[in-house]
Design a protein around this nucleic acid. Structure first.
Lengths: 279, 279
DNA sequence: ACGACCGGTCG
DNA sequence: CCGACCGGTCG
């Protein structure tokens, strides 16, 4: 469909949402809009839930476009009683974590693997402790914990031990460099340290064309962020749900790669990677 | 004076600006407002220049309060033709660098010391090269270069060599951890690596009281950011221009300290520190 | 309570 | 062109 956008100041623009029909767009709105200001629903839950709903409804659409052009723009237009843009900042990052856990746990459960969001302060403290990272990582630099039954560090009474963590980021900007010191420590401890991103980035009018190309650049013209992974190997792997992100070539200097996939379905690059590394 | 603020949504609030009179406030407005939308003036220059003007006009006021309650709120209210909040984000950080250089260079020149903003891409590349940091720091993680006549690294034809750098941040948030890897490398190279901050942070209504207490916590209840300096020694020193920032005690675990001072005048903690370290 | 979340800007 | 800048939010 063609989505019409209004940027105020007389700036209008149109963006092409591939593999999303007008009817599908309307159904996403019908699901999401009532949740945005519902006092019984945390915004992060509304956003995470709407993303899972929308990517299941439109499995061939670009997940990053759904997030950026549909959910972001709808949320900031509809949110009332608070600063909509800052509320999006505060809640959408956690919404992405929630969506990851909701999306992958049912598939991973069959393999004795479990993901948990570390949004709550105590969950994070306990997880850092179990990874042996307390005091070595400045605060909280891992968002989702990955555990496996019968393996990993600090096995609990339920038999699950910590085998890795996910650094979840909607967009990268310069902020991804925050996560690198923690990631290197985790990898040195034998833990998987995965960068999971929607790689959202478009340039709005009047200068930009709104096409959500992300920030990882290309193989021939890599950005610093691509070099962090393919060159320095600062993460075990990177998974992008922006279909415009250029994936890594078959081999890389560090042996670490960027993988690109949709968000819906059962198995994808991320589950394949976890199963290969953990089983 | 008492400043009345309007946060929309029916939220008004009043903030006490100590050591700023109504007349002084009016003079700052008269200086700053015409520059905000002047196409001949870069916003960072307008902000940096207005800060130097205002801190000279009101030398006993809290510089961080001038920045946060006067310049920030005036800029975002007056800016037109672009998103005012994001324009502030983009330009105010560089405005702070400009103000630092403008404030300190006249005083330091008498001692053969020079500061230069590394805003321009080529200045930054050249500076990183001279510090021996190219490729070792992910991109550009130092904002202002400090040079001394007849000393330091990569002495130029004018006799000035690089002796250190400044990480300039209006506010700290989690973003200060970005600068630590670069800072540690700089210190290992024998360079000064100074964190210079306005330590701006207040909580707006309806939850907060707008008092700009910053983020460094207290000696008895330190924040992670205070620990970075006093505990880990991740920077050579930290200078805050928020008079509400609690300075370090006489001694610290790392031997590194947080110093607090006003912004106007000739010598202050920062110049004392540079002269002690460099002469 | 005090921390980390993210994106339009503009050089 | 493509990077780093910062602050209201809300748990």
């Amino acid at each position: 469909m063609q989505l019409n956008l209004d940027f105020g100041r007389g700036l209008g623009a149109q963006v092409d949402l591939q593999n999303i029909s007008d009817d599908q767009y309307a159904r996403i709105q019908a699901y999401f809009v009532p949740l945005i200001n519902d006092p019984r629903v945390k915004s992060r839950e509304a956003i995470g839930g709407a993303f899972v709903f929308a990517t299941n409804l439109c499995p061939d659409a670009n997940p990053s476009d759904i997030w950026h052009h549909v959910l972001y723009r709808t949320y900031t237009r509809e949110k009332v009683g608070t600063n909509p843009e800052q509320s999006w900042v505060r809640t959408s990052g956690e919404g992405y974590e929630i969506a990851l856990v909701e999306r992958y746990n049912p598939v991973l459960a069959a393999h004795g693997i479990r993901m948990s969001s570390l949004i709550s302060g105590k969950a994070k403290v306990s997880a850092l402790d179990r990874m042996g990272l307390t005091g070595r990582i400045g605060g909280s630099k891992v968002d989702v914990m990955i555990e496996k039954d019968g393996a990993g560090l600090s096995r609990g009474r339920d038999g699950f031990g910590v085998v890795g963590g996910i650094h979840a980021k909607v967009s990268l900007a310069e902020r991804v460099s925050d996560d690198i010191p923690a990631s290197r420590i985790m990898m040195a401890e034998g833990l998987l340290s995965v960068l999971s991103t929607l790689d959202v980035k478009s340039f709005p009018p009047p200068h930009g064309d709104l096409v959500n190309r992300g920030e990882l650049g290309t193989l021939t013209n890599p950005s610093d962020k691509r070099r962090y992974i393919e060159g320095h190997g600062d993460f075990s792997a990177c998974f992008s749900y922006n279909l415009r992100t250029t994936p890594s070539a078959e081999t890389t200097a560090s042996g670490r790669s960027i993988y690109v996939s949709g968000f819906a379905g059962a198995n994808d690059h991320f589950t394949d990677y976890l199963l290969a590394e953990l089983t």
